[in-house]
Amino acid sequence: MSCIDEMKYEILLSQCSFKEAREYIKKNFKDVVEVPPGYRIFDTFLIGVPPLFVGIEGEDVIIPYTKPCYGTYVMRIEGGDEIEKLRAKR
């Protein structure tokens, strides 16, 4: 159901643990928003154990993306309207 697979994205970290993804986002991005597990972004519901961080850099969002058979990826995707929604959560 996820449409992230069909979007243009860049993989920043591949097949890591969720904890590694969380730490990578927190360490490498100044603008970080904490969201609850199951947070809906791009019609995908984020998988993760709190705290779950989403980074914002320019026009992009940086998210952890977990797949059952492949582990967690950190992905950079053009944010569009999602950036405003994330900022409103602050």
Binding site: K19, P37, G48, T66
Partner: peptide, 11 residues
Amino acid sequence: HSDAGVTYAGT
């Protein structure tokens, strides 16, 4: 049996 499984359960 993997970190991903634990992460789904945590969600």
